[in-house]
Design a binder for these strands. Sequence first.
DNA 1: TGCAGATATGTCGGATGTGACATAAGTTAG
DNA 2: CTAACTTATGTCACATCCGACATATCTGCA
Lengths: 110, 110
Amino acid sequence: MDAKRRKKLEAAGFRVGTVADFLELTVEEAALIDLKLSLGILVRSVRKRAKLSQQGLAGRLHSSQSRVAKLEAGDASVSLDLIVKAAFAAGAKKADLANAIVKRRRVAAG
Amino acid sequence: MDAKRRKKLEAAGFRVGTVADFLELTVEEAALIDLKLSLGILVRSVRKRAKLSQQGLAGRLHSSQSRVAKLEAGDASVSLDLIVKAAFAAGAKKADLANAIVKRRRVAAG
DNA sequence: TGCAGATATGTCGGATGTGACATAAGTTAG
DNA sequence: CTAACTTATGTCACATCCGACATATCTGCA
């Protein structure tokens, strides 16, 4: 963004910065969200390979189908703890987690 | 454990099983605890490499020294979310997390 | 020894994630 | 088409984790 446009926006009361700034995220919070997304995707993949429904996985997890749906969708209300427990309950191994973490995901218009 | 001793203990009202059984942990909960330990150790290592005190890291994290101490010690009151945020705040990369996860830790009398 | 910084441990009120539930929407087979 | 199953989304009371604080212990160093 050029300086002129920035000045104009700021004069109008807007704060200008990155998306993370806008959402008031620290960089580590942004990294955590990224990680949750990656692991949510892993859970879905491992669960399907195990021929489990969300309901079935929820049973193993002692959780509920709606939580599993949310965790696979990267919903902000789900903790990393639950996502990782779900991955293990679905049959993932540590190495699967490690791979999911370092794997690059495709990004829209990237 | 031999069957005789088991019978005796069970007759006395004890339930006999693994440590995880005793603590009423599912296998995925046990795996999660293991993971938290590994990552807590990683945080300490990355923090020291960055010449940060727990206080200093707590500042970056917008948390407190006591939380950092607990997270590095594998305290049960600390979420995986906070541990991972701490790792990133200390300067860890995704690959560092991945390595910490798969690395085997030395176990007492293992 | 004594001082200073670092780390460990316990507690607490308030913030956030929890499972459960309802229900809508999507999918598959008869 | 319907029926059965699966997945998505919103809500709520309750449980858990949070940062903050106090305080104890550890760890050099003068």
